[in-house]
Computed example of a mutant assay.
Amino acid sequence: MVASESLVDGIWQDAPPSGAANALQALVSRLRRALRGLDVDVESHPAGYRLAVEPDAVDVVRFERPPRAAGPWPVTRRPPRGSCARRWNCGAGPHCWTSRPPTSSGRR
């Protein structure tokens, strides 16, 4: 959630309009209209606003997620080169960017 005060400060910096709370509500109303039909909603809370989206709709959540159930790395084979997302079904993320699997300490 983002506090209304933070939104006002971010939008108008040091020169908020008189009635900044009402002006912010008008902007949020316009945002809701723009988002209509998408799988996202702007929720109002007493202290501010929150974008309500499914976690999989946020790219950073997908990026930081560990590899999907690809199974353990084969002991007798070198890890694949190239697109591990295609060959190992591990999705996107930094763990797919090298040809060596991460160790238990997270180092390669």
Rank of each mutant, 00 (worst) to 15 (best):
A3T: 05
S4R: 14
S4M: 08
S6K: 09
V8S: 00
D9H: 13
W12A: 09
W12C: 07
W12F: 12
W12L: 06
Q13A: 04
A15G: 04
P16H: 08
P16D: 13
S18G: 01
G19P: 01
A20P: 11
A21S: 15
N22C: 00
L24A: 00
A26K: 05
L27D: 10
S29E: 10
R30T: 10
R30G: 05
R32V: 04
R33C: 03
G37I: 03
L38Y: 08
D41R: 11
E43H: 08
E43F: 11
H45C: 00
H45M: 09
H45Q: 06
P46R: 15
G48L: 06
Y49C: 02
R50Q: 15
R50V: 07
A52W: 11
V53I: 08
E54T: 10
P55Q: 02
D56S: 12
V58E: 03
D59N: 05
V60E: 13
R62W: 03
F63A: 02
E64C: 13
R68S: 12
W73C: 09
P74M: 11
P74N: 13
V75M: 03
T76I: 01
R77K: 09
R78A: 14
P79E: 13
P80N: 10
R81M: 10
C84M: 11
A85E: 12
A85G: 10
R87H: 12
R87D: 13
N89F: 14
G91C: 01
C96E: 11
W97R: 15
W97D: 12
T98F: 12
R100Y: 08
P101T: 01
S105Q: 14
G106A: 02
